[in-house]
């Protein structure tokens, strides 16, 4: 797979606005959730993707509306990027009836089937075989859609990774396996948990293309995923993409981050995917600072609206507890 760099930027102004807006939505959504957890306003747990906005937004940006994704426990970004309404996402985190899962799923299970999001997943690696199966439907019914499967570095060490990728590759299914390598599972670093440099090197084992990219560079993410999606749509089967990135926050709400240094965190914060994209847009003359600031403010307002919507939404009725166990 060619290593595409930022020089191939071919965005229109509208696309640039859309992407930047989405990246800010993702960031503000998760920062808001972080704040609510700290204040004890949301229960359960959550996994934030602050710092990983370029992978979620970039990968979903090159999909068609009919394409599908499978997501992970760290899935708010994927969900927003695939077109979900932050209002209904926030309502779900507040456990409200208006949430995507009627308050029954919470952060780890948000699914937006209408927009092609087959769900976050509380089981690490759980989405990989599901993506394979969704791609099988596309192939058997000749529906033409591609499935983009998000998973983490940690998930690549589950048996479901090996079994899912092998199956997808022998059946040449239209699926793109997109590993967000944020350097850690909960605490286990990739250095400790892998005996290879790049997870995408495993692509060889399945006879499929592999690509290692800078996951904090949204243009590179888009270009690479676009090529892989095209390949899948053309019937040539899966690709394994590994995007190197970093989660800025702890793994979940309770994490003292003892397994990594503050210096390392600072170094990655300096590679902020949003700041980099802004700089690029400015350099290319696509958007000016004033416009970009306004995009940021607009996203912040939308998240405030989402909070207001969530807070004013009703709780599910106790009687609803028995609903939806069976179809």
């Amino acid at each position: 797979m060619p290593n595409i760099t930022q020089s191939t930027l071919k965005l229109t102004r509208d696309e640039a606005v859309h992407l930047l807006h989405q990246m800010w939505l993702v960031r503000f959504f998760d920062e808001k959730v972080d704040e609510f957890f700290a204040r004890g306003l949301i229960h359960g747990t959550t996994h934030l993707c602050v710092g990983q906005e370029a992978t979620a937004v970039g990968a979903c940006a090159v999909l068609r509306p009919m394409d599908k994704i499978t997501s992970t426990h760290r899935g708010h970004g994927h969900c927003i990027a695939k077109g979900a309404d932050p209002k209904r996402m926030m309502a779900e985190l507040f456990g409200r009836e208006t949430g995507y899962c009627k308050g029954k799923g919470g952060s780890m299970h948000i699914a937006d089937l209408e927009k092609g999001n087959l769900g976050a997943n509380g089981i690490v690696g759980g989405g990989i075989p599901l993506a394979t199966g969704a791609a099988l439907t596309s192939k058997m019914k000749q529906l033409g859609y591609v499935v983009l499967c998000f998973f983490g570095d940690g998930a690549a060490n589950e048996g479901s990774f090996h079994e899912g990728l092998n199956l997808a590759s022998i059946w040449k299914l239209p699926v793109v396996f997109f590993c967000e390598n944020n350097q850690y599972g909960m605490s286990g670093s990739v250095k400790e948990m892998f005996n290879i440099e790049n997870i995408a090197d495993r692509a060889k084992a399945y006879g499929i293309p592999g690509a290692v990219i800078d996951g904090n560079d949204i243009v590179q993410v888009m270009d690479t995923v676009e090529t892989a999606v095209q390949r899948a749509r053309d019937g040539h089967g899966p690709t394994l993409i590994e995007a190197k990135t970093y989660r800025w926050k702890g793994h979940s709400k309770s994490d003292a981050r003892k397994y990594r240094t503050r210096e390392e965190e600072q170094a990655w914060r300096a590679r902020d995917p949003i700041a980099r994209f802004r700089a690029l847009l400015l350099e290319e003359g696509l958007l000016d600072v004033g416009t970009m600031d306004e995009i940021e403010r607009e996203a912040a307002r939308e998240i405030e609206d989402a909070v207001a919507y969530a807070e004013s939404s009703p709780m599910p009725a106790l009687e609803s507890i028995l609903d939806d166990v069976y179809a």
Partner: peptide, 12 residues
Amino acid sequence: GLPVPIPYNPEL
């Protein structure tokens, strides 16, 4: 327990 997966909402 009720014959349901454990729901997220704290009251449920």
